[in-house]
Amino acid sequence: MNGLITDGVFWLFAVGSVVTAFRVFRTDSMMRAAFFLLASFAGVGGILALLGAEFLGMVLILMMAGEMLVMAIVMVMFMMNPAGLNPMWMVHQHRVAVVAGAGSFLALASLPFVVDLPDRPAPRPEEATAELGTELLGGSMLVFQTAGVTLLSAMIGAVVIAHRNGRFGEAEQGSLEPALEPPGEEKG
């Protein structure tokens, strides 16, 4: 009975997250696209929790909520048609993309049926969070610290890149090194 409920919830999340992921590229407003993407992530977060990786799943949702908001703001700022008044269909190399997407799906989806994966379920899923904590600050301390430093440098880099004052003067001027030629007519 319990397994049946778990299975039902899993398929709900699974179908939901795949359908919403597909809808991301099939909607007329970037805003809706962002909401669909978040729904897809929330579904995956749910599946992660079902698999026992509660911490990862919840952190995924926590992180993605902020990220989607930033994404929505960036889209309204820079992208045209945020309200979805016009149909949105902005693609290139569409056929290649479809083939690549379908191909990678088929290849990856066939893997578990072709490869004989070992069947070793996690013995104590209820301890998973504590184990992760011990791992983070124990054996994998260096990896964890590296991840932290990477994020910090990404943050600083992002601020520097997005800032109005580039390294060689104001960014609108096309902040080139003084010795280089100014940008040609390819601009904007």
Binding site: N81, L85, N86, P87, W89
Partner: peptide
């Protein structure tokens, strides 16, 4: 078109 868009494409 269904949304009364002015022409084709996004803009």
């Amino acid at each position: 078109g269904p949304y009364g868009q002015g022409g084709t494409g996004m803009t």
